[in-house]
Design a protein around this nucleic acid. Structure first.
Lengths: 153, 153
DNA sequence: ACTTAACTTGATAAACTCTATCGAGTTTTG
DNA sequence: CAAAACTCGATAGAGTTTATCAAGTTAAGT
């Protein structure tokens, strides 16, 4: 599982939306500036997340985007799978995007058996972590640093 | 960590060489046929593994390749890192191939903190599994299937 | 109604990576 | 000295990634 910029931007945008959950809609402009993401590209990505049903938008003057689901219900696995495809390191061990490989016999392939373990390890984390938890981490990390700054002053 | 064909071929070739460890050198032709790998491409890959010091070659009429190190000493992590680059899902959590990301503050980035965990999970497996273990799995898988076939007959 | 900020959709283009293939050369064995 | 095999560097075609643009649609506020 290699996360491209596209996927990374998506997660970063979702954190912003997650932290804003329950409030009014956020314009793309704001998300873009807050996370340093090219606006046009972000537009495309948010659109994609809308198709997936994670995000919803409001048009017009004070329009923008917001989460459609509670942050607790959005797993990183779902987002990444939709945007990037398989989480597995090779196609022949993917559950959702299986593709056969060219080895003589998959059932006797030692590499496949190891890669299955790698896949499990990755999936176990990403299927369990939600946007809500991401937001919590951010809050915690910010809190920590804030405190440190306070001490320094 | 996404394994490209290049990396997959490398591992498959190493299994063949591992199973042959202690014996004479194996010609590319044989490895290529046994694992269904385009010969010219394999050539390039084995060369690369030679540079890394994992494999050695013998030229001439009855030449070929063999492992230079005992299979127990070759970890998948080393091979993949050399051929494919970072194991980490994003550059900003890679130990060996760190690259900064564009987020406003890495130290407060929730995604980074999750991706670190993913990286750890991957590395833990791949740094610990060796070519020798891959070969053992293959032997075991073949043995199992053999037995099953016997029962069927 | 009309202006304006913002979303929507689809096209496209530059850069890069991946997968392979080729050719010409060098080495070694028998 | 011929044959088999490795060596090295170039390169090409396909596909992916990362954007950017233009033209259109929507809806809020006046």
């Amino acid at each position: 599982m290699k996360l491209s910029l596209r996927g990374e931007y998506a997660l970063r945008a979702l954190v912003v939306l997650g932290l804003n959950y329950g409030e009014e809609v956020l314009p793309i402009q704001v998300i873009s500036e807050r996370q340093n993401i090219p606006k046009r590209f972000l537009e495309q990505i948010l659109n994609d997340l809308k198709t997936l049903g994670i995000v919803e938008s409001k048009r017009g003057v004070s329009g923008g985007y917001r989460l459609r689901l509670p942050p607790e219900e959005v797993t990183l696995a779902a987002v990444i799978r939709h945007l990037e495809g398989p989480l597995a390191p090779v196609g022949c061990v993917s559950e959702k995007f299986y593709t056969p490989c060219t080895c003589p016999d998959e059932s006797k392939c030692g590499i496949r058996s190891i890669m299955k373990e790698v896949r499990e390890a990755i999936v176990k984390i990403l299927e369990q972590v939600t946007v809500a938890q991401l937001c919590d981490r951010v809050k915690h990390l910010q809190g920590t640093n804030q405190a440190v700054s306070d001490y320094i002053i």
